[in-house]
Nucleic acid binder design. Structure first.
Lengths: 215, 215
DNA sequence: GAATTAATTGAACGTTCGTTTTATTATTAT
DNA sequence: ATAATAATAAAACGAACGTTCAATTAATTC
């Protein structure tokens, strides 16, 4: 009853974050109790409040960092070229890689939005909108230069994002398909969907035969 | 204190179902309390237990009837033809119309699966799989007869369903786009996505110019 | 080595939860 | 009318919830 030998604030906080993402993804935010989370970390429930003032603060922190990481990875992967097809290919590849790599975190950020307060919901949605805006810009450029055949930029962006993010619902690493195969197939579907007529280059030119060109 | 004048079991049960779908869609299953639901119906919490033995029974009933309705509507809309493109068009149109018309119910059935017991989860997933199997069969027939260009039937089916169902996330009736416009655009995207080369007929040939043919 | 700070425990708080029980009233059948 | 039944209210149950508080021990600083 008191401080535990070898206890370390930073390690405990990291363990709490990790366990929380996993538990919330599996049980849902409302269904996960602070006592359950504490047990998973190997600590008493009261100890959690040293790191997160409330349960909602914990949820918000997880979501904010998820969105920040998503935006940061896209900014790192964004190609310098102005060619819409190449930019779209990079967006698809980055999006799928990120979401497959962070399935639990994505589940949390997509399914638990209603548990946030109004202000915090607005913050998260702002980040999401900023990320989606990048895709809309690519589609618009492609439509204007005639390399894409898109009816409605906004609608197509939403459809593509739903399609791509949906990969986490059914994809399980190590089963029938590899990440590279899934990415290649989604890339091909995306290019057909937007009616891409020109070739495009990809960040992984030697990964798979289908990567090389659209049609 | 006692039976209320004008009270009627059937009406109360219907009111409970309706209020439950709406409340669960808005707050989530775990976050909705039986007292909240009762208040929405205008009744005491204890009265709910006359119609549903437990909260989970209520959830399961809502989900089962949602899935049954989805399958029933598809069986009613399924065209007699063997032409894959026409069948795919009918599937897309039916799917989007159903999900836009039952946004709340869809939200419940898609987001609250983890609150079901193992056995009941299995039952719901079985129905879902049966429905998705229909789409896979259409894609397979199209791929085999050469009218579709599809890499992976199962993956494409999942991608299409995620894309189509995702419409409920952003679509709001009475805003920028009409249901007919959304359906037509999704149909066009679907046909490009599967690489359809032939024309197809639709159940709503006069609804929109884009309905008439692929490309 | 003493004082300070960091990390945690254990117990408790008031609230709310799903559910049950019992009594009471409206409706229906006889 | 009277008996039977259907539909509810009111109150209570124990359990679990998020959170707080005081005490206690480990690590760090001086």
């Amino acid at each position: 009853m008191g401080r535990t030998t070898g206890s370390d604030g930073e390690k405990t906080e990291a363990a709490v974050r990790e366990a929380a993402v996993s538990l919330i993804a599996r049980l849902g935010y409302e269904a996960m109790s602070m006592r359950q989370l504490a047990a998973e970390v190997g600590v008493q429930a009261a100890a959690l409040y040293r790191y997160f003032p409330t349960k909602e603060d914990l949820l918000f922190t997880l979501m904010r960092e998820h969105m920040q990481a998503l935006i940061a990875e896209w900014e790192a992967a964004r190609p310098a070229t102005a060619d819409p097809a190449t930019r779209l290919a990079a967006y698809v590849e980055n999006h799928i890689a990120f979401h497959i790599g962070r399935r639990h975190s994505t589940h949390v950020s997509n399914m638990e939005l209603r548990s946030l307060s109004h202000d915090r919901l607005t913050q998260i949605l702002r980040m999401r909108t900023a990320y989606e805006k990048e895709l809309r810009a690519i589609l618009r450029d492609g439509a204007e230069t005639g390399v894409f055949n898109v009816d409605d930029t906004g609608l197509t962006a939403m459809a593509l994002i739903q399609m791509m993010t949906g990969v986490i619902v059914w994809f399980r690493p190590g089963e029938r398909l590899s990440v590279a195969e899934v990415t290649a197939t989604y890339l091909a579907m995306t290019m057909r969907l937007v009616g891409a007529t020109m070739s495009y280059s990809t960040a992984h030119p030697f990964g798979h035969a289908k990567d090389a060109a659209a049609r």
